[in-house]
Structures are given as structure tokens and as C-alpha cells.
């Protein structure tokens, strides 16, 4: 079993443990409506995290995802409210998300800002833009519920499966496919592992990073549209929680913040895990403190695995290398 499979096994075991725990301790856990809602809740996070995973594998990070979701949600709600054709609203929303991501990517590659700094800053910029474009009456911010039925349809689903869940699953499959079956995917791992070696091999590192951030922004846009359609209104707080939850989901799913590791399937499991905790703890009537505690513990488990594993392998390699005498150059 290789290192990647080991990581995924850990995530899977954690998910399974939660399912068993909540399945046995609560009554309605396995009910269709609970499962359906659980997946719906995980979907918004999952879509954001799927895009973020590419950024993280490429050795970056994105702290502006939550703000991007919020901004796009507000933008689309204004467009829908202004009776612009729905299809156009959706396309503009996705484009806006992609532009936010591309801006992050450009700041990081062309202006050489550290990813943390660049996206921390744009997080505030995009959040600020929500406030700028929000609905106002008598100069006070107000929340306006959408009434356009065609748009609100997006917040429903077929039978017990929400549309957003279908979109999430398709997106996970797509990202997984991109990572493993395209040139771009291979280059994402290469850039995240060793930038200079990638350059020597003729990879356009900046291009890879910009595309990764653009995909991340686009994913935020998609999540925003479905979130808005389900909730029926956007507020200044919409999307806020996703910034850190998406990073958590990716780490729990085996991605490494130092780059080069992780994939869409792992992050998928990470999102299910995050949602299970929220859902299960609610069902068990436990205080929400435990939710935070459990998330923290799980991140620790994954991180400890990462560092222990890396230390173990590098020690093994070093021992192989030092063995006996060695020479060198004068």
C-alpha cells in the first residue's frame, strides 16, 4: 500500500467511525431525509474544497474562498432581482468567481506575493465588495429574499437528491480526472512538490498556478449559486464558514499544505467527515463545542501522520545513503 492509499484509509476509517457512532447513538441518522440533507450540506463545502484541492496540491493556499462565495452570491442575487435572464445570471456568477480566483493567481505569480498574504488581503477585498453591492434601503443594509421561482428551483433536486449534490459529485469526478489523466494534473503535483525542478523540466509554473486559482474561484462561484438558490437570499455572512472548513476538509482528506499531496477523492471524504460531525453532533444533542474539538483532533491526526510519515521515510532514505564511508569533492 503506498503512502497515498494509507492517508485515504485513515480518512475513510475516520468517516466510518463517525457513521458507526452516529448511526448507533441516534435514531434518524440513516433516514433518507437525513442522508439527503447531510449530502446537501456537504455539497457547498465540497464544491469549494474540490477547487481548493488543486491550489493546495500546487503548493498554494486560498484564504479568499469564503469571501468569493459570499461576493458571487450577493452579485447573483442582485442580478436575479433585476430580472436578468437566469442563464445569464448563472454564467456571470461563475465568471465572477473565476475572475476572483484569477486575480489571486496573478497577485501570487506576477507580483510574487506570498499566497497567504495575497489571499488574506483579497479575502477582505471580496468581503468588502459584498457590502458595497448589498441591497440598501435608506442607506441601511437589508436582506432581500428572491422570489424568482425558476432560480429557486436550483435549490431543490430530483427526488431526495439535491441538484447541488449531483453537481458536487460530478465536480469531484472531474477534478480527480484532471489530476490523474491530464498533463495539467501531473504538472500541478510537480509544481507543488518542487518548483525549480518543474521549471527545469520546461513547465510553466506561473501558468499552472494561475489556472489552479482560477478553478478554485470558479468552484466558489458554482457553490455560491446553489447556496443562494437554496437559502433564497444572500447576506454579508454568506459563505464565510467555507474558507477554513474547506482547508480543513482538504487536510483531513490527505492534502498537504506544503504541496504535492492530496486528491479530489480524499477531499471528498474530508468534506463528508466535516459534515458528519456537524450533523451528528446536532443529532446527538451535544453542545457544538464538541464539533470544533473533533475537527481539531482530526486535523491533528492527519498532520501527525504526515510529519511522522515524512520523517520516517526521510530517515530511512538517509540511513540508506549514509551507510559506510562516503567521499566527496575537495
Amino acid at each position: 500500500m503506498n503512502e497515498k492509499q494509507k492517508r485515504q484509509l485513515i480518512t475513510f476509517a475516520m468517516v466510518a467511525a463517525l457513521v458507526v457512532l452516529f448511526g448507533t447513538t441516534t435514531d434518524s441518522f440513516f433516514s433518507v431525509s437525513n442522508i439527503s440533507n447531510l449530502f446537501r450540506g456537504a455539497s457547498y463545502l465540497g464544491i469549494v474544497a474540490a477547487g481548493l484541492t488543486i491550489v493546495i496540491i500546487a503548493g498554494g493556499n486560498n484564504l479568499s474562498t469564503g469571501a468569493t462565495v459570499g461576493f458571487v452570491a450577493m452579485l447573483v442575487s442582485r442580478l436575479v432581482y433585476a430580472n436578468i435572464p437566469i442563464v445569464l445570471c448563472i454564467l456571470l456568477g461563475m465568471a465572477a468567481g473565476a475572475v476572483c480566483g484569477a486575480a489571486d493567481g496573478l497577485l501570487i505569480t506576477k507580483l510574487h506575493l506570498p499566497d497567504f498574504v495575497a489571499t488574506l488581503a483579497t479575502n477582505y477585498v471580496y468581503s468588502g465588495m459584498i457590502l458595497v453591492i448589498t441591497f440598501r434601503q435608506n442607506n441601511r443594509m437589508v436582506t432581500k429574499a428572491l422570489t424568482n421561482q425558476a432560480f429557486l428551483q436550483l435549490g431543490t433536486g430530483v427526488g431526495d437528491i439535491f441538484y447541488v449534490t449531483i453537481v458536487w459529485l460530478v465536480l469531484v469526478a472531474a477534478v480527480q480526472f484532471i489530476l490523474y489523466y491530464t498533463k495539467f494534473g501531473t504538472h500541478v503535483y510537480a509544481v507543488g512538490t518542487n518548483t525549480s525542478a518543474s521549471q527545469i523540466s520546461g513547465i510553466n509554473v506561473d501558468k499552472i498556478k494561475i489556472i489552479a486559482y482560477t478553478i478554485s474561484g470558479l468552484a466558489c462561484g458554482i457553490a455560491a449559486i446553489f447556496l443562494l438558490a437554496y437559502e433564497g437570499a444572500a447576506s454579508a455572512k454568506t459563505g464565510e464558514v467555507y474558507t477554513f472548513n474547506a482547508i480543513c476538509a482538504a487536510i483531513i482528506g490527505g492534502a498537504s499544505l506544503s504541496g504535492g499531496r492530496g486528491d479530489a477523492l480524499g477531499t471528498f471524504l474530508g468534506c463528508i467527515f466535516m459534515q458528519l460531525i456537524t450533523n451528528g453532533i446536532y443529532k446527538m444533542n451535544l453542545a457544538s463545542e464538541y464539533q470544533t474539538l473533533l475537527v481539531g483532533a482530526s486535523i491533528l491526526v492527519m498532520s501527525i501522520f504526515n510529519t511522522v510519515y515524512i520523517r520516517y521515510t526521510s530517515k530511512r532514505n538517509r540511513l540508506q545513503t549514509i551507510k559506510a564511508e562516503r567521499g566527496g569533492t575537495v
Binding site: T186, Y189, A190, G192, T193, N194, S196, A197, S198, I200, S201, G260, R261
Partner: peptide, 12 residues
């Protein structure tokens, strides 16, 4: 300095 990428396979 080796320029191989440890997280990828030999073929990659």
C-alpha cells in the same frame, strides 16, 4: 541537484 519530483512516479 536532483530535479526529480518525489511525489510522482518514475514514469511521470
Amino acid at each position: 541537484e536532483l530535479s526529480v519530483i518525489p511525489t510522482l512516479t518514475v514514469m511521470q
